[in-house]
Protein backbone atom coordinates (compact mmCIF):
# COMPACT_ATOMS: atom_id res chain seq x y z
CA UNK A 1 0.00 0.00 0.00
CA UNK A 2 1.50 3.29 -1.12
CA UNK A 3 1.51 6.24 1.20
CA UNK A 4 -1.52 8.48 0.85
CA UNK A 5 -2.85 11.56 2.48
CA UNK A 6 -6.07 11.15 4.36
CA UNK A 7 -8.89 13.65 4.29
CA UNK A 8 -12.21 13.39 6.02
CA UNK A 9 -14.94 15.28 4.24
CA UNK A 10 -17.70 17.10 6.09
CA UNK A 11 -20.12 17.66 3.21
CA UNK A 12 -20.75 15.90 -0.11
CA UNK A 13 -19.78 19.05 -1.96
CA UNK A 14 -16.50 19.34 -0.09
CA UNK A 15 -15.84 15.67 -0.72
CA UNK A 16 -16.38 16.02 -4.45
CA UNK A 17 -14.08 19.01 -4.62
CA UNK A 18 -11.41 17.30 -2.54
CA UNK A 19 -11.51 14.28 -4.82
CA UNK A 20 -11.25 16.07 -8.13
CA UNK A 21 -7.46 15.90 -8.24
CA UNK A 22 -5.80 13.01 -10.05
CA UNK A 23 -4.93 10.08 -7.82
CA UNK A 24 -7.73 10.69 -5.37
CA UNK A 25 -10.21 8.04 -4.27
CA UNK A 26 -13.23 8.14 -2.04
CA UNK A 27 -13.30 5.63 0.77
CA UNK A 28 -16.43 4.65 2.63
CA UNK A 29 -16.75 0.98 3.63
CA UNK A 30 -13.29 0.28 2.27
CA UNK A 31 -14.02 -3.41 1.82
CA UNK A 32 -12.91 -3.51 -1.81
CA UNK A 33 -10.59 -0.50 -2.08
CA UNK A 34 -8.29 -1.49 0.78
CA UNK A 35 -8.02 -5.04 -0.54
CA UNK A 36 -6.85 -3.60 -3.86
CA UNK A 37 -4.53 -1.06 -2.26
CA UNK A 38 -2.76 -3.77 -0.29
CA UNK A 39 -2.11 -5.57 -3.56
CA UNK A 40 -0.84 -2.37 -5.20
CA UNK A 41 -3.63 -2.58 -7.77
CA UNK A 42 -5.10 0.69 -6.55
CA UNK A 43 -2.47 3.33 -5.76
CA UNK A 44 -4.30 6.45 -4.62
CA UNK A 45 -2.09 9.26 -3.35
CA UNK A 46 -5.03 10.67 -1.48
CA UNK A 47 -8.09 9.19 0.18
CA UNK A 48 -11.18 11.22 0.88
CA UNK A 49 -13.10 9.56 3.68
CA UNK A 50 -16.79 10.03 2.96
CA UNK A 51 -17.98 7.54 5.57
CA UNK A 52 -19.27 10.20 7.93
CA UNK A 53 -21.25 12.20 5.39
CA UNK A 54 -24.93 12.50 6.00
CA UNK A 55 -25.91 10.07 3.27
CA UNK A 56 -27.19 7.31 5.53
CA UNK A 57 -30.94 7.76 5.20
CA UNK A 58 -33.51 5.73 3.35
CA UNK A 59 -36.45 7.99 2.50
CA UNK A 60 -39.72 7.69 0.61
CA UNK A 61 -39.89 9.63 -2.62
CA UNK A 62 -42.98 11.66 -3.53
CA UNK A 63 -43.99 9.18 -6.22
CA UNK A 64 -43.93 6.25 -3.81
CA UNK A 65 -40.42 5.08 -4.58
CA UNK A 66 -37.46 5.01 -2.28
CA UNK A 67 -34.25 6.98 -2.08
CA UNK A 68 -31.26 5.23 -0.56
CA UNK A 69 -28.32 7.26 0.67
CA UNK A 70 -25.00 6.18 -0.77
CA UNK A 71 -23.66 5.32 2.67
CA UNK A 72 -26.48 3.05 3.73
CA UNK A 73 -24.76 -0.21 4.52
CA UNK A 74 -25.66 -3.36 2.64
CA UNK A 75 -27.07 -4.84 5.84
CA UNK A 76 -29.23 -1.83 6.61
CA UNK A 77 -30.53 -1.66 3.07
CA UNK A 78 -31.37 -5.36 2.98
CA UNK A 79 -33.12 -5.07 6.33
CA UNK A 80 -35.11 -1.89 5.60
CA UNK A 81 -38.83 -2.58 6.06
CA UNK A 82 -39.81 -1.00 2.78
CA UNK A 83 -37.11 -2.82 0.87
CA UNK A 84 -38.19 -6.13 2.34
CA UNK A 85 -41.84 -5.36 1.58
CA UNK A 86 -41.67 -3.72 -1.84
CA UNK A 87 -38.26 -4.53 -3.30
CA UNK A 88 -37.58 -7.97 -1.92
CA UNK A 89 -35.38 -8.88 -4.87
CA UNK A 90 -32.94 -6.29 -3.57
CA UNK A 91 -32.87 -7.76 -0.09
CA UNK A 92 -32.45 -11.21 -1.55
CA UNK A 93 -29.58 -10.12 -3.77
CA UNK A 94 -27.72 -8.28 -1.05
CA UNK A 95 -27.83 -11.14 1.43
CA UNK A 96 -26.59 -13.52 -1.25
CA UNK A 97 -23.37 -11.53 -1.46
CA UNK A 98 -20.16 -11.48 0.58
CA UNK A 99 -20.49 -12.19 4.31
CA UNK A 100 -22.35 -10.64 7.20
CA UNK A 101 -19.21 -8.81 8.32
CA UNK A 102 -18.63 -7.31 4.90
CA UNK A 103 -22.28 -6.35 4.45
CA UNK A 104 -22.14 -4.49 7.77
CA UNK A 105 -19.40 -2.28 6.40
CA UNK A 106 -19.93 -2.13 2.67
CA UNK A 107 -22.05 0.73 1.42
CA UNK A 108 -24.57 1.12 -1.36
CA UNK A 109 -22.32 3.44 -3.34
CA UNK A 110 -19.25 1.32 -2.78
CA UNK A 111 -21.01 -1.85 -3.82
CA UNK A 112 -21.80 -0.27 -7.19
CA UNK A 113 -18.13 0.61 -7.63
CA UNK A 114 -16.58 -2.71 -6.64
CA UNK A 115 -14.06 -3.85 -9.17
CA UNK A 116 -13.61 -7.04 -11.14
CA UNK A 117 -12.71 -10.35 -9.49
CA UNK A 118 -10.72 -11.66 -12.41
CA UNK A 119 -7.63 -13.44 -11.02
CA UNK A 120 -5.40 -11.74 -13.59
CA UNK A 121 -6.65 -8.32 -12.50
CA UNK A 122 -5.71 -9.34 -8.97
CA UNK A 123 -2.01 -9.98 -9.60
CA UNK A 124 0.17 -7.08 -10.70
CA UNK A 125 2.67 -9.44 -12.34
CA UNK A 126 0.15 -10.65 -14.88
CA UNK A 127 -1.14 -9.07 -18.08
CA UNK A 128 -4.43 -7.22 -17.59
CA UNK A 129 -5.82 -4.41 -19.67
CA UNK A 130 -8.15 -3.35 -16.90
CA UNK A 131 -5.37 -2.87 -14.39
CA UNK A 132 -2.60 -1.94 -16.75
CA UNK A 133 -3.94 -0.83 -20.15
CA UNK A 134 -2.10 -2.28 -23.11
CA UNK A 135 -0.65 -5.32 -21.37
CA UNK A 136 -3.22 -7.70 -22.80
CA UNK A 137 -5.84 -9.98 -21.36
CA UNK A 138 -4.40 -13.21 -19.99
CA UNK A 139 -7.85 -14.49 -19.08
CA UNK A 140 -8.81 -14.93 -22.72
CA UNK A 141 -6.66 -18.02 -22.91
CA UNK A 142 -6.21 -18.65 -19.22
CA UNK A 143 -8.47 -19.22 -16.26
CA UNK A 144 -11.81 -17.83 -17.36
CA UNK A 145 -14.28 -20.19 -15.74
CA UNK A 146 -15.86 -17.48 -13.61
CA UNK A 147 -15.70 -14.65 -16.13
CA UNK A 148 -18.15 -12.93 -18.44
CA UNK A 149 -19.77 -14.39 -21.51
CA UNK A 150 -21.40 -11.30 -23.00
CA UNK A 151 -20.72 -7.60 -23.24
CA UNK A 152 -17.02 -8.41 -23.27
CA UNK A 153 -14.34 -7.37 -25.72
CA UNK A 154 -11.02 -8.70 -26.94
CA UNK A 155 -9.47 -6.46 -24.30
CA UNK A 156 -11.34 -7.74 -21.27
CA UNK A 157 -13.73 -10.49 -20.24
CA UNK A 158 -14.08 -9.63 -16.56
CA UNK A 159 -17.53 -9.80 -15.05
CA UNK A 160 -19.12 -7.37 -12.61
CA UNK A 161 -19.12 -9.12 -9.27
CA UNK A 162 -22.00 -7.34 -7.51
CA UNK A 163 -25.21 -9.09 -6.52
CA UNK A 164 -26.88 -5.91 -5.30
CA UNK A 165 -26.42 -4.17 -8.63
CA UNK A 166 -28.21 -6.98 -10.46
CA UNK A 167 -31.28 -6.40 -8.34
CA UNK A 168 -31.00 -2.65 -8.80
CA UNK A 169 -30.94 -3.18 -12.54
CA UNK A 170 -34.08 -5.28 -12.52
CA UNK A 171 -35.75 -2.60 -10.40
CA UNK A 172 -34.76 0.17 -12.86
CA UNK A 173 -32.94 1.99 -10.09
CA UNK A 174 -31.04 5.18 -10.87
CA UNK A 175 -27.81 6.48 -9.41
CA UNK A 176 -27.63 10.05 -8.10
CA UNK A 177 -24.32 11.86 -8.15
CA UNK A 178 -22.80 15.17 -7.27
CA UNK A 179 -19.99 16.75 -9.24
CA UNK A 180 -17.30 19.02 -7.83
CA UNK A 181 -18.98 21.99 -9.48
CA UNK A 182 -22.13 21.27 -7.51
CA UNK A 183 -24.23 19.90 -10.35
CA UNK A 184 -26.13 16.70 -9.75
CA UNK A 185 -26.85 13.93 -12.22
CA UNK A 186 -29.09 10.92 -12.33
CA UNK A 187 -27.96 7.88 -14.30
CA UNK A 188 -29.55 4.59 -15.14
CA UNK A 189 -27.29 1.63 -14.45
CA UNK A 190 -26.73 1.14 -18.16
CA UNK A 191 -25.64 4.79 -18.31
CA UNK A 192 -23.56 4.39 -15.15
CA UNK A 193 -21.57 1.34 -16.24
CA UNK A 194 -19.42 1.28 -19.35
CA UNK A 195 -18.78 -1.85 -21.34
CA UNK A 196 -15.08 -2.61 -21.64
CA UNK A 197 -14.61 -2.25 -25.42
CA UNK A 198 -10.98 -1.18 -25.75
CA UNK A 199 -10.88 0.77 -22.48
CA UNK A 200 -11.65 -1.78 -19.79
CA UNK A 201 -9.89 0.34 -17.17
CA UNK A 202 -12.81 2.79 -17.45
CA UNK A 203 -15.67 1.07 -15.68
CA UNK A 204 -18.17 3.85 -15.10
CA UNK A 205 -19.08 7.18 -16.60
CA UNK A 206 -18.33 9.02 -13.38
CA UNK A 207 -16.15 12.08 -13.82
CA UNK A 208 -13.22 12.99 -11.58
CA UNK A 209 -14.51 13.88 -8.14
CA UNK A 210 -18.07 12.89 -8.95
CA UNK A 211 -19.58 11.40 -5.81
CA UNK A 212 -22.41 8.89 -5.69
CA UNK A 213 -24.92 10.39 -3.28
CA UNK A 214 -27.59 7.77 -3.51
CA UNK A 215 -29.71 5.35 -5.42
CA UNK A 216 -33.39 5.86 -6.26
CA UNK A 217 -35.85 3.03 -6.63
CA UNK A 218 -38.93 3.77 -8.72
CA UNK A 219 -42.37 3.05 -7.24
CA UNK A 220 -42.90 -0.64 -6.48
CA UNK A 221 -44.01 -2.82 -9.36
CA UNK A 222 -45.42 -5.70 -7.34
CA UNK A 223 -44.92 -9.24 -8.59
CA UNK A 224 -42.94 -12.09 -7.12
CA UNK A 225 -39.35 -11.13 -6.35
CA UNK A 226 -36.65 -13.74 -6.63
CA UNK A 227 -32.88 -13.77 -6.66
CA UNK A 228 -31.06 -16.98 -7.39
CA UNK A 229 -27.30 -17.23 -7.18
CA UNK A 230 -25.36 -20.25 -8.41
CA UNK A 231 -21.80 -20.65 -7.16
CA UNK A 232 -19.08 -23.19 -6.44
CA UNK A 233 -19.68 -23.32 -2.72
CA UNK A 234 -22.80 -22.76 -0.72
CA UNK A 235 -21.90 -19.30 0.56
CA UNK A 236 -19.19 -16.63 0.60
CA UNK A 237 -18.40 -16.92 -3.09
CA UNK A 238 -19.04 -14.82 -6.14
CA UNK A 239 -21.70 -15.90 -8.58
CA UNK A 240 -21.04 -18.18 -11.50
CA UNK A 241 -24.41 -16.91 -12.64
CA UNK A 242 -27.23 -15.16 -10.86
CA UNK A 243 -30.76 -14.30 -11.86
CA UNK A 244 -32.78 -11.42 -10.43
CA UNK A 245 -36.40 -11.70 -11.43
CA UNK A 246 -39.71 -10.03 -10.83
CA UNK A 247 -42.48 -12.25 -12.12
CA UNK A 248 -45.99 -10.95 -12.52
CA UNK A 249 -48.26 -13.21 -14.52
CA UNK A 250 -47.11 -13.18 -18.11
CA UNK A 251 -44.67 -10.35 -17.59
CA UNK A 252 -41.17 -10.76 -16.24
CA UNK A 253 -38.29 -8.50 -15.52
CA UNK A 254 -35.00 -10.36 -15.43
CA UNK A 255 -31.42 -9.26 -14.92
CA UNK A 256 -28.40 -11.54 -14.81
CA UNK A 257 -25.24 -11.41 -12.73
CA UNK A 258 -21.84 -13.04 -13.05
CA UNK A 259 -22.02 -13.09 -16.82
CA UNK A 260 -21.26 -9.60 -18.06
CA UNK A 261 -19.18 -6.53 -17.24
CA UNK A 262 -22.31 -4.96 -15.81
CA UNK A 263 -25.63 -6.28 -14.55
CA UNK A 264 -27.11 -7.73 -17.72
CA UNK A 265 -30.64 -6.95 -18.71
CA UNK A 266 -32.14 -6.92 -22.19
CA UNK A 267 -35.66 -5.45 -22.23
CA UNK A 268 -36.33 -6.97 -25.66
CA UNK A 269 -35.77 -10.36 -24.14
CA UNK A 270 -38.53 -9.74 -21.63
CA UNK A 271 -40.85 -8.92 -24.54
CA UNK A 272 -39.76 -12.10 -26.27
CA UNK A 273 -40.71 -13.94 -23.10
CA UNK A 274 -44.15 -12.38 -23.03
CA UNK A 275 -44.77 -13.23 -26.66
CA UNK A 276 -43.53 -16.81 -26.56
CA UNK A 277 -45.65 -19.87 -25.87
CA UNK A 278 -45.73 -20.91 -22.24
CA UNK A 279 -43.28 -23.79 -22.51
CA UNK A 280 -40.78 -21.84 -24.58
CA UNK A 281 -40.67 -18.62 -22.63
CA UNK A 282 -37.49 -19.13 -20.66
CA UNK A 283 -35.64 -20.24 -23.77
CA UNK A 284 -36.97 -17.28 -25.72
CA UNK A 285 -35.73 -14.91 -23.04
CA UNK A 286 -32.29 -16.48 -22.78
CA UNK A 287 -31.91 -16.75 -26.55
CA UNK A 288 -32.56 -13.05 -26.91
CA UNK A 289 -30.70 -11.86 -23.84
CA UNK A 290 -27.58 -13.81 -24.71
CA UNK A 291 -27.67 -13.41 -28.45
CA UNK A 292 -24.08 -12.76 -29.49
CA UNK A 293 -22.61 -14.23 -26.30
CA UNK A 294 -18.92 -15.03 -26.68
CA UNK A 295 -18.05 -17.47 -23.94
CA UNK A 296 -14.62 -19.03 -23.64
CA UNK A 297 -14.21 -22.77 -23.70
CA UNK A 298 -13.98 -22.73 -19.91
CA UNK A 299 -17.10 -20.71 -19.23
CA UNK A 300 -19.32 -21.91 -22.06
CA UNK A 301 -21.29 -23.81 -19.41
CA UNK A 302 -22.68 -20.51 -18.19
CA UNK A 303 -25.19 -20.11 -21.01
CA UNK A 304 -26.93 -23.45 -20.48
CA UNK A 305 -26.63 -22.84 -16.75
CA UNK A 306 -28.41 -19.50 -17.14
CA UNK A 307 -31.18 -21.23 -19.02
CA UNK A 308 -31.56 -23.82 -16.29
CA UNK A 309 -31.36 -21.26 -13.52
CA UNK A 310 -34.01 -19.07 -15.11
CA UNK A 311 -36.29 -22.07 -15.43
CA UNK A 312 -35.71 -22.85 -11.77
CA UNK A 313 -36.56 -19.28 -10.86
CA UNK A 314 -39.74 -19.33 -12.93
CA UNK A 315 -40.76 -22.64 -11.40
CA UNK A 316 -40.20 -21.19 -7.96
CA UNK A 317 -42.21 -18.09 -8.87
CA UNK A 318 -45.05 -20.31 -10.00
CA UNK A 319 -44.97 -22.15 -6.68
CA UNK A 320 -44.86 -18.94 -4.69
CA UNK A 321 -47.74 -17.46 -6.70
CA UNK A 322 -49.81 -20.57 -5.98
CA UNK A 323 -48.94 -20.45 -2.32
Amino acid sequence: MRAFSYTRADTPQAAAQAAEATGTKFIAGGTNLLDLMKLDIEQPSRLVDVSRLNLRDVTDTPDGGLHVGALVTNTDLANHPRVKADYAVLTRAIVAGASGQIRNKATTGGNLLQRARCPYFYDTNLPCNKRDPGTGCAALRGLSRTLAVIGTSDACIAQHPSDMAVALRVLDATVSTLKPDGTARTLTLDEFYRLPEDTPHLETTLEPGELITGVTLPPPVGGTHLYRKVRDRASYAFALVSVAAIVDGDRVRVAFGGVAPRPWRVPDAEDAYAQAKADGRADALIDRAFEGARPTEENAFKVPLLRRTLKAVLAQAGQEAQA
Partner: peptide
Protein backbone atom coordinates in the same frame (compact mmCIF):
# COMPACT_ATOMS: atom_id res chain seq x y z
CA UNK B 1 -13.04 -13.79 8.72
CA UNK B 2 -10.29 -14.43 11.29
CA UNK B 3 -10.01 -10.69 11.98
CA UNK B 4 -13.67 -10.20 12.85
CA UNK B 5 -14.27 -7.70 15.67
CA UNK B 6 -17.30 -5.81 16.89
CA UNK B 7 -17.25 -2.16 15.84
CA UNK B 8 -19.86 -0.17 17.74
CA UNK B 9 -21.49 -3.53 18.37
CA UNK B 10 -21.57 -4.79 14.78
CA UNK B 11 -19.31 -7.48 13.41
CA UNK B 12 -16.87 -6.23 10.78
CA UNK B 13 -13.57 -7.32 9.25
CA UNK B 14 -10.82 -5.35 10.93
CA UNK B 15 -8.41 -6.06 8.05
CA UNK B 16 -10.52 -4.10 5.58
CA UNK B 17 -10.79 -0.83 7.39
CA UNK B 18 -8.36 1.85 8.50
CA UNK B 19 -7.94 2.82 12.12
CA UNK B 20 -8.03 6.53 11.25
CA UNK B 21 -11.55 6.13 9.93
Amino acid sequence: GACTVLLDGQRVLSCLTLAVM
